[in-house]
Design a protein around this nucleic acid. Sequence first.
DNA 1: TTGAAAGCGTTACCAC
DNA 2: GTGGTAACGCTTTCAA
Lengths: 339, 339
Amino acid sequence: MGKITIFDVAKEAGVSKSTVSRVLNEKGNVNEKTRRKILKVMEKLNYHPNSSARSLVTKKTHTIGLVVPNIIDPFFLQFIKGAEDVGIKNEYNMMLVSSNWQVKDEWRYLRLLEEDRVDGILLISGRNISDSYIEFLESEKTPIVIIDRVLEKNIIPTVNVDNVNGAYITTNYLLENGHRKIAFVMGPNNMQAALNRYEGYKNALYDYNIKLSDELIYHGNFTKESGYQATQKIINDWDDVTAIFYSNDGMALGGLKVFKEKGIIVPDDISIVGCDNIRELSLIDLPLTTLSQPRYKMGYTGMELLIKIIENNDNIYPEKIVFNMEFINGQSVKNISAR
Amino acid sequence: MGKITIFDVAKEAGVSKSTVSRVLNEKGNVNEKTRRKILKVMEKLNYHPNSSARSLVTKKTHTIGLVVPNIIDPFFLQFIKGAEDVGIKNEYNMMLVSSNWQVKDEWRYLRLLEEDRVDGILLISGRNISDSYIEFLESEKTPIVIIDRVLEKNIIPTVNVDNVNGAYITTNYLLENGHRKIAFVMGPNNMQAALNRYEGYKNALYDYNIKLSDELIYHGNFTKESGYQATQKIINDWDDVTAIFYSNDGMALGGLKVFKEKGIIVPDDISIVGCDNIRELSLIDLPLTTLSQPRYKMGYTGMELLIKIIENNDNIYPEKIVFNMEFINGQSVKNISAR
DNA sequence: TTGAAAGCGTTACCAC
DNA sequence: GTGGTAACGCTTTCAA
């Protein structure tokens, strides 16, 4: 570890530590000539301030804890990238912690706070965090921002996406293209996003004066396999369904597998839309019409907000930031109005 | 930030800071009864030691800097995961820094060292690090381990993969399956991995007493596009090439695109092998025969080595760790011995 | 514009 | 076994 301290610089430059500290922190009130000299000495000695000593007195680490559910899933990369870009710009370091979707791992990022290792925490995809832990976090005074989890009582600031609106727009798009009998493949009932997407679907039908039919609702759990099964049921149950709304892309991939096996052509025989714009889609021949979470933007904005809170310049910041989902117009929907 | 200090605990427990510190660090030499009492007080006060103060005196941060070329590329995730698992097990935190493939960003992780923020650095995929920077790192006393870069002068420990051996095995596999005219699509000339794979190909032919033909060597730059172009040239130039060895999977994907367009069936009309086992392959209908870098293992082992060096228990550790590539037997090679 | 000195929360050494 | 005290490297008053 580096041995040159502020004292060495001071001695070499013939001044006191205080003065060196002042130029280090650009506090001004230093004679330009001595300032130059000190800078030169720093350079010569290759001096760099020790961050622990600094943090000990300033109570700032200039480090942010980045908590991700799972480090191995590419889904989270864009959130991280967005956050990172802001972090770099503001000269913050990033401590990476993966929660592994496990409640029992929550202590690992908690400890970052308790030991004063970080100035704040960005919780990415907080969907999996236990309620009791959220409650605990709310009682903490450390700055926290949560991305991708809706909180009822809004004490911790969140960055989210408007799933209701997204599903509404998408459903509406299907309706505008002449589809009337639209099957809907839901996600898990305990996920807010899944419920919201269902709500958007429902609202769109309602506004279009189409009666909602429960029989058109199928259940999945966001996996490809569950999409596969739901799709099999759908084509078994109906011969007049012209479109399927998968409430995530993973399940849509499962659907595509069924269609391929049965020789059903998308979008000629059936129209489909997905939701999430997962990376894998780029490798599929068929450009899927889908909704995209602006993940980069969400990470970016979340980090910006967090840093703002940490640096607390004006104490003015929103508790809730919501992005619209982006509608991605692919080629998996056919206009059947004419028929 | 937490306000409870070791002093508060000492006072509450009616002992001195020294004693509290002793139980904190499990140094022994503490009466069992007072030890229990102190632990109870810590619990009651929810005391957690301040890491900066600790680091300041111990010169250890229990944090490791993880440098990745690019945070957005899923290719690196398994390295990171492997490293993380070891980190967690040994109670190290991980500071994430992406180098963005940019020489100009090298200062960002250098600074982690200079400011004593980390105990060591794990450089993942060091292929892109400039020579001069490597040289500089060698002059540093901080523990560093580099994954995926071959160093001539072995001062910094490295974890690598045996590309020569991998390409040898793969080429040999083609030969055993009756192929004699095997085109080879190279990677960039300035990448060690690309050259090594070429060497393995060459050696295998040599050992099989097959004369190497320069005309069968095509050049790419590891991108899908370059694989596409090389493949077009190959099928243009030859009608008796029965197999193609792409020195990475990205280029193999480009090749597949050509075959699809031209109605060439793999492996019936032509056999192909790739190299790297990229994630995208799982989504392709055709299971590609390829080589896999054991990325998780490399990250895991690199981190293990780094921690060992940091903790320096016995001062015995290898400078060079090499894994074999794993041969993945897909369905893109046909045995043509019989014909 | 500068310097002296206190203090940040620990660990580590040395007496007792 | 235990406590007092110096030391870690810096920032921050306060006085000059």
